[in-house]
């Protein structure tokens, strides 16, 4: 459904590109008093996708929230994408979402039908995920915002943090990059309709099936690739794990149409923030500026980045491709070297 007022025109930045830079957040939260609770297995200090709180030996609570301004003009699709993106953090921990709360901000001029379509998109994805929307909170504001707070469960013995990659692991990325560039160029009407349909389908796709494959394998570490881009999230995995990630850029899947558009300067501001944050940990070698731009490009509802033993990787990838056909090996994990990330 297209509406009278273009949703993306109501927002100053799109989707996960609106995310505040990682470095900014870390320094703002320094020095606050917090309780120590041994049952909080994963908290803020870990820079992970969601927090994990142990309830008993085999059950832990997984909690996360994610919301952003419109990334597309169709309200139903926007709702679907925002929900898929919020649910993804639970999948990235190896968990299953059970409850969700709507987080909604509406400008006065948004029509009732538009709001209804937006919410229908959210409910549609939460239903597909097997979870329930149990409530929420709505306010008026200058720009539309939609997302979810999600609660799920995981067996704490099988939870997947972003800080447990081991030397010798293979790296798999499950969705192609370029979403930030393409959604930015779409504002200039430079993205053909079939390409838009392809990226819309990708952003609305749950990472559920990927999670279901992942938990059948001995995956060591996982994170979802969203606002900080592949290199921002890879840096968190490398630092958290105390290892170096080597990424073979020729093998990194991306939407081919994003290449020339990145070269033409259709990069979201978030791509530059991600570069500023992560660049000091990246040895870029002879990798072209355009390729680097795509590696720093903020993704909305992106894929998962997995680290798992090399000998399991081929089987896992074959199974993953049923759900995520463009999943690919993109590199490996080594002992910590001079840089956290090496691009080849």
């Amino acid at each position: 459904m297209e509406t009278g007022v273009k949703l993306t025109k109501l927002a100053s930045c799109a989707g996960c590109g609106a995310k505040v830079g990682a470095g900014t957040l870390a320094s703002m939260l320094e020095g606050f008093r917090t309780h120590k609770d041994p049952r909080l297995l994963v908290g803020y200090d870990k820079s992970d996708d969601a927090c994990v709180y142990q309830l008993d030996e085999s059950t832990a609570l997984v909690q996360t929230t994610d919301f952003f301004p419109p990334i597309v003009d169709d309200p139903f699709l926007y709702g679907q994408i925002a929900a898929a993106n919020a649910l993804s953090d639970v999948y990235a921990m190896g968990g299953e979402p059970r409850l969700a709360l709507n987080i909604l901000c509406l400008p006065e001029q948004m029509e009732e039908d538009t709001v209804r379509e937006l919410l229908r998109g959210g409910y549609d994805k939460v239903y597909e995920a097997g979870a329930v929307i149990a409530g929420g909170h709505t306010i008026h504001g200058a720009e539309p915002i939609y997302g979810l707070a999600v609660t799920g469960f995981v067996d704490p013995r099988r939870m997947l943090t972003n800080s447990a990659a081991r030397p010798g692991d293979a790296l798999i990325l499950t969705k192609p990059l370029g979403i930030g560039v393409l959604t930015t160029a779409a504002k200039a009407d430079l993205v053909p309709e079939p390409v838009l349909r392809r990226i819309h389908r990708q952003m609305a796709a749950l990472n559920r099936a990927t999670r279901d494959v992942m938990v059948r394998h001995d995956v060591h570490s996982c994170t979802d690739v969203t606002g900080f881009g592949l290199l921002g999230h890879s840096l968190e995995m490398a630092q958290g794990s105390g290892c170096t990630l080597r990424i073979r850029t020729a093998d990194v899947p991306f939407h081919p149409e994003a290449w020339e558009l990145a070269d033409m300067g259709f990069l979201p501001a978030g791509a530059y923030r991600n570069r500023d944050y992560a660049e000091c940990g990246v040895e870029a070698g002879a990798v072209s500026r355009t390729m680097q731009d795509l590696l720093y490009d903020p993704q909305t509802s992106g894929g998962l980045l997995l680290a798992l033993p090399m000998e399991e990787a081929a089987d896992c990838l074959r199974e993953l491709r049923a759900a995520a056909p463009e999943a690919a090996f993109i590199g490996c994990v080594t002992e910590r070297g001079e840089n956290w990330i090496v691009l080849e």
Binding site: M264, L267, A269
Partner: peptide, 11 residues
């Protein structure tokens, strides 16, 4: 802003 400077340069 920095991003606009870089992007217009690229274009």
């Amino acid at each position: 802003n920095h991003a606009s400077r870089e992007n217009t340069t690229r274009y």
